[in-house]
Amino acid sequence: MENGTVIVQSEDQVIQHEAENVRTPLLEFWRKFKKQRMAMIASSFILLLFVVALIGPFIAPYSAVEPDYNNILSPPSMEHLAGTDAFGRDIFSRIIEGTRISLFVGLSSVFVGAVVGTVLGLISGFYGGRLDSIIMRFCDVLFAFPGILLAIGIIAILGPGLGNVIIAVAIFGIPTFARIVRSSTLAIKATVYVESARSIGAPAKRIIWKHIFPGTISSIIVYFTMRIGTSILTAASLSFLGLGAQPPSPEWGAMLSSGRDFLNTAPHVTFFPGLAIFITVLAFNLLGDGLRDALDPKMKD
C-alpha cells in the first residue's frame, strides 16, 4: 500500500470507476497522509490499542484483580512479562485491562470538550457582537487557570473519582476548541459562498451547519487527536495525585502511583505503567502531527 506504484494504480481505478471522484478531499488527504511514515506507524499502533481495549480481558494472561500472594513484587520474567505488583498481580495483564480505561477517559473527555467548544466557537464567530464577547470572556477565565490547575479545582469541588476526572478534563478542553473553531468560523464567514448563501436567504442555522461547520472540521480533527494525548496524560496525572481512579483499578496512573513505595526494590512496578502511558500519548501526538501536516499545512504547533 505504501510504495509509489500502488498510488498510481489506485488513482487509475478511481478514474475508471468513479470519474467524478478523482480528487475528493478525502483522497487528497489520504495521498498526503500516506507519505508520513511516523503517523502511519502511530495509527497502526492506535488501532492495536483499540483492539486491545475491546478484547483486553480475553487476551490478558492473568486476572487483573485477583491477588497472588506467592508472587509478590517479582521482577519481569517469562511468566510475568512486566513482573508483578505488591499484591502479586501480573502487571502486564493489568496494563492490558487499563488500556480500556485510558482510551475511554481520553476519548470521552475530549469528545465532550470538543462538542461544547465547537458549538460555542461557531456561535461566537458567526453572531459576533455581545454574544461573542461573553463567550470569549468565559474562555479567558477558563484559560486563566494554567494547565492541570483547573482540573484540580473542579475535582476539589466534585470530589475525587474517574467520572469527575472526565468532567474536569472535558471542561479544561472547551476554551481551546472554542477559540480554534471561532477563528476558522470568522475566516469562512468572510468567503463568497457564505455571502451568496446569505443573499439567497438561507437561515442562519443552515449557513452554520451546512456551510461553515464543514470548513472547520479539519482543524477540529487535528486538535481532537492532539488533545487525546494531553487528556490521557492529564487524567493519568490526576490519578497519580490520588484524585482520579482509586488503587484497585488498573488505571495506569493509579498503578504507577501505587508502585512509588517500592521504587527502590521493585522499579518495574512504576516503569511499565508509565511506559504504557508514554507510548500511547506519543502515538496520539504523532498521529496529530501527521494529520496536521496532511489536512492543514498552514496550521502551526
Binding site: 511516523m38 494525548g229 496524560l233 493519568a236 496525572s237 497519580f240 496512573g253 504507577l256 502511583s257 512509588r260 521504587l263 527502590n264 522499579p267 512504576t270 516503569f271 508509565g274 511506559l275 502511558i277 508514554f278 500519548v281 506519543l282 501526538n285 504523532l286 502531527d289
Partner: peptide, 25 residues
C-alpha cells in the same frame, strides 16, 4: 523533532520517578 514530540508525551511524574531511580537510588 522525535525527541521533542517524546518530550511532550512524557508523563512528568514517570520521568521524575525514573530519574530518581537512576540518579539518586
Amino acid at each position: 523533532m522525535f525527541s521533542a514530540v517524546s518530550g511532550i508525551s512524557l508523563p512528568s511524574f514517570w520521568l521524575g520517578l525514573m530519574l530518581i531511580q537512576l540518579f539518586s537510588v
